[in-house]
């Protein structure tokens, strides 16, 4: 029992990441508001950033700056990777928001179910045009 407790504690970063991931994913899937979906998507992405950063950490390691004094460094590569991933994430969010704005302009709403209703009437119009 103690063993398992330790196991759970020792991997707390993974638990946190998984929680964040699940919450983010849930928000994307369950919320009908496009902005909320984008928020969820961001949480989902952030969870991955956390995953990378946390696995790059080495116990007692410091920032990887060669000063000659310390010898244990954290792995710098994940930080670099995640810097890139953050940029990608920002770009995605920007496009998502831009699309949401355009959708609001042309549909007059950003609620998914209302958009679906409009889409469906459009489809019926198409079918009638046949």
């Amino acid at each position: 029992m103690v063993m398992e407790y330790n196991f759970i504690l020792a991997h707390y970063n993974y638990w946190a990441v998984m929680l964040l991931m699940a919450v983010g994913f849930y928000v994307v899937v369950s919320r009908g508001n496009l902005i909320k979906k984008i928020v969820g998507l961001n949480m989902f992405q952030v969870s991955v950033f956390m995953l990378y950063i946390s696995i790059g950490k080495v116990t007692d390691g410091t920032a990887p700056i060669l000063t000659g004094k310390t010898e244990v460094f954290s792995n710098p590569l994940p930080h670099v990777l995640i810097l890139t991933a953050i940029v990608v994430g920002v770009a995605t969010t920007a496009i998502g928001l831009a699309l949401a704005v355009r959708i609001h302009e042309s549909y007059g709403t950003i609620e998914e179910d209302e958009i679906l209703v409009i889409d469906r009437t459009l489809e019926q119009q198409d079918a009638r045009a046949q």
Binding site: V28, K37, G96, L99, I103, S106, Y107, I115
Partner: peptide
């Protein structure tokens, strides 16, 4: 196209 793109983005 906008909603299609949004879904695709997600």
């Amino acid at each position: 196209a906008l909603t299609a793109a949004f879904t695709y983005l997600l």
